[in-house]
Each structure stands twice: as structure tokens, then as C-alpha cells.
Computed example of a mutant assay.
Amino acid sequence: MKTRLFYAILVAVGICLQGCTTSYAKDREDAKETPAGERLEISFRFQRGGIASSQYAIWIEDETGKLVRTLYVTSFTAKGGYEYRKDAVPVWTSKAKPQTLSSAQVDAITGATPRNGVLTYQWDGTDNNGNRVPAGKYTFFVEGTLYWKSRVIYSGELDWGGKGQDSIPVEARCFNLSKTNENMIAGLKARHLKK
């Protein structure tokens, strides 16, 4: 009887662990507040599509247009999908140059395509090397490949080190828009929070 109970508990724990994806764990890690209490928070509703869809990337650029931090990119794209699916988040691919990144660098920014629901990503003011960025103007980008060449890029600006904003104005640019999977990323909101 004790042996059966032990195995039942092991199976239950295994099922729970399988449900915890890499992206979920990364979200929780990124959600830790910075010592200064300043952070950028980006959230949106995500709805997975079918074939040739559901790829997205989130990154931060400085005022010169240099990519300073990739917060997240779907594993398929960063781990080689960009080579044979040229329409998979092409702006991020051209900026981040994933072909030049080591496996460890790619693993640090990727995760499995998440499940449907509201997703939240946070930036703590550090670059891809973990160094604090200087105060100044930064732009965040969320690029999504909705269906084949149909994609959207959301962006917004913030003054890091300056006054926080409870709601950052977000611009959306659409390319080759198709009705298929057009709501993959919806209701995107961004906040620049300070203690």
C-alpha cells in the first residue's frame, strides 16, 4: 500500500513539473524587482495559431537603435528557424544576429511557445551581459509573426531613470496583414514602474 502511494505521489509531481515551461520559469525570474525598484512591464493576451505562426520576440533598444537586451524570443526562431523561415520575426533576427550567439546566450533568451493566456515580461534595466544601462531614452519592441508573412510590431518609448509612466503609449505597425491569427498578440500594455 505504501509503495503504491509513493508511486502515485511521484507521478503527480512529475505531471506538475511537466506543466512548468522554461518561459514560465524565465518570467518568474525576470519578475524580481531591481534594487532601485525601477522596471518596465509589458503584458498582452497571447493566442497560439497553427502552422507558420506563433513566433515572437521582445527586445529593448537604446536611443541609437542598438539592441541592448532581448527579453524573450521563441525557441524555434532563435535556434535556427530564422534560416529556413525568413518571415519568422525578421526585425529581431536582423538586430540580434542569432547566428553569432553561443548556445548559452540563446538559451538565456528563449523559451517554448507559451500556452494561451495573458503573458507578462519585465525588464530590470540591464543589458544582455547583465550590466546596468545608463539613464536615457529606450524603446521596447514586440514583434510577432502571425501567419507566414503577416506580422505586427508593437513599440513604445520610456525614459529609463526618469519619471515612471503607468501607461506607455504603444504604436502598432502591421505588415501583410491577414485575418488568419490576427489576434495572436492582443491588448498589449506597457508600464514603466518606479518605487
Rank of each mutant, 00 (worst) to 15 (best):
F175I: 08
R85F: 14
A135D: 13
G111E: 13
E182G: 00
V170G: 03
K66V: 09
N176S: 08
A78V: 14
T145G: 01
F76V: 12
L71C: 06
R69G: 02
F175G: 06
E171H: 01
G164N: 05
S102I: 08
G125N: 09
E182N: 00
A190C: 12
S94I: 14
T126Q: 09
L146P: 01
S178C: 09
Q99I: 13
F140P: 02
K137M: 09
K163L: 02
A112S: 15
A172G: 01
Y147C: 02
L71H: 06
K79W: 15
S75R: 11
Q122C: 11
P90Y: 09
C174T: 15
A108M: 07
T113E: 04
T77G: 01
K95G: 13
Q165P: 10
F141Y: 15
T74R: 00
T113P: 02
Q122K: 00
W123Q: 11
W92I: 06
V133I: 15
T100R: 10
T70L: 02
E171N: 13
N176F: 04
I185E: 02
G111D: 01
A88K: 08
G117W: 11
R69I: 03
V170C: 04
G156D: 04
N129M: 09
W160D: 04
T100P: 10
T64R: 15
E157I: 13
E182W: 01
G111K: 01
G125I: 08
T70M: 03
A96T: 12
V133L: 13
N131C: 06
D159Y: 10
F76H: 14
P134T: 05
K66F: 15
A88P: 07
R85W: 13
A186Y: 08
N176T: 12
V133C: 07
G187Q: 04
L67G: 11
A172F: 05
Q122G: 02
G164I: 08
T100A: 13
T120P: 03
I168R: 05
V133S: 07
G80L: 06
L146T: 08
S94M: 09
D127K: 10
A186L: 04
G111Q: 06
G81L: 10
N128H: 12
A135I: 10
S94K: 12
T77I: 01
V106Q: 05
A96R: 05
N128E: 13
G156V: 10
R191L: 14
G80Y: 13
T93Y: 08
P134W: 14
I109N: 01
D166G: 15
Y138D: 04
T70S: 02
T113L: 04
S178W: 03
E157L: 13
M184S: 06
N181H: 11
S178F: 00
N183S: 08
V170K: 00
W123N: 00
L188K: 01
R115I: 06
Q105M: 09
Y72H: 07
D166Y: 05
D107M: 02
F175V: 06
D124A: 10
I168T: 12
P114F: 02
L177V: 08
S150N: 07
N116S: 08
A112Q: 11
L71R: 01
S178R: 02
S178P: 09
N131Y: 09
A186N: 12
R132M: 04
P134I: 11
P114Y: 01
